[in-house]
Amino acid sequence: MISRIDLRGDALPEGPALRDLLPRADFDVSVALEKVRPICEAVHHRGDAALIDFTEQFDGVRLERVRVPAEELARALEGLDPEVRAALEESIRRARLVHREQRRTTHTTQVVPGGSVTEKWVPVERVGLYVPGGRSVYPSSVVMNVVPAQEAGVGSIALASPAQAEFGGIPHPTILAACALLGVDEVYAAGGATAVAMFAYGTESCPPANLFTGPGNIW
């Protein structure tokens, strides 16, 4: 049975007392590293072939290719429930308002006559974004990853989400539809450590990224 902690109306403590009130599960990073390291090394050295093998091992589906075809994105958007589409479009609109205001402009400070310091914010060239895809579907993670990158001016955006055997090896259609709404057409059926390694090292189908973001667990 799932335990519940109801804190409505309570004044929350600070510091260690708050951590004691809402404890996190114990985990051993070294154990995770022992299992993740060979996965990353395999992707580093074998590229797409390793991604395909691990997808079959972990997700139960044998892929023909790792990158999701453009027609699958279009089909997912076409089949998206109108109410879900409206909700996603509104989420995107609100997220853009927030992140557009966060973008900083170039600022120059005159220090001495003839001497100045300029602060300039330059977006990274390419980002890899991760959207979990276990037992639940998280199109909100698509919005929360993609919109900040777009508003920052990142020129190349790629997204990975685990392959779903139920849908023939592509990520969940709602995830694909959210990508299509945002204009992201570089999507990969890759999950967990395999996706991290793909973006870190690059493969035949996926160039490496300068930055990787997204939610996930220790794996």
Rank of each mutant, 00 (worst) to 15 (best):
R135K: 15
E119N: 11
P113R: 12
G79F: 03
G79M: 10
L182Q: 10
C179R: 03
E78T: 10
R100S: 15
Q57H: 13
V187I: 05
T194M: 10
L159G: 11
A152V: 12
L182K: 07
G155H: 12
E119K: 08
A158C: 09
V127G: 05
V146D: 10
H172P: 06
S141E: 07
V117G: 13
E151M: 03
V124A: 12
A160C: 03
V143E: 09
H107Q: 11
E64P: 03
P162A: 10
I157C: 15
A152N: 08
G192W: 00
V143D: 07
R135N: 08
E83Y: 10
A158W: 06
T105L: 13
V117D: 13
R67Y: 01
S116R: 11
Y188Q: 11
V187K: 02
D81N: 15
V127Q: 11
R65I: 00
E83P: 00
T118A: 11
S156G: 05
R75K: 07
A200E: 15
T118L: 05
I157K: 10
S141F: 02
G191S: 12
G192A: 14
V117M: 15
G168C: 01
V137T: 09
E166V: 02
T105M: 11
P171A: 08
G155S: 15
I92P: 02
R94Y: 13
T174W: 08
Y138S: 05
P148W: 02
R103Q: 12
V124E: 09
E186F: 06
A149H: 13
L129A: 12
R96Q: 10
C179T: 00
R103I: 04
Q57R: 15
G128D: 04
E56M: 07
G183L: 07
E89D: 06
S116F: 04
G192Y: 01
G60L: 03
F199D: 09
T194K: 00
P113W: 02
G168V: 02
R96G: 04
Q57W: 02
V187H: 08
M198G: 05
G153M: 01
G134I: 05
L129E: 09
E71T: 05
A193Y: 09
E125R: 14
V61P: 02
M144D: 12
G155R: 15
V124Q: 09
G115W: 02
S136N: 06
A70I: 08
E71C: 01
V66I: 06
E90L: 12
A163L: 08
L176Q: 00
T174P: 00
A197C: 12
S161K: 06
A70D: 13
A178E: 04
T55S: 10
K120G: 11
L181V: 09
A74W: 08
V124F: 06
Q110C: 09
P113E: 14
G133S: 09
V122D: 09
R126P: 04
V187W: 07
A87K: 12
T105N: 15
E125C: 10
G168W: 03
V66Q: 05
R93F: 07
A74T: 13
V196N: 09
P69Q: 00
G192N: 08
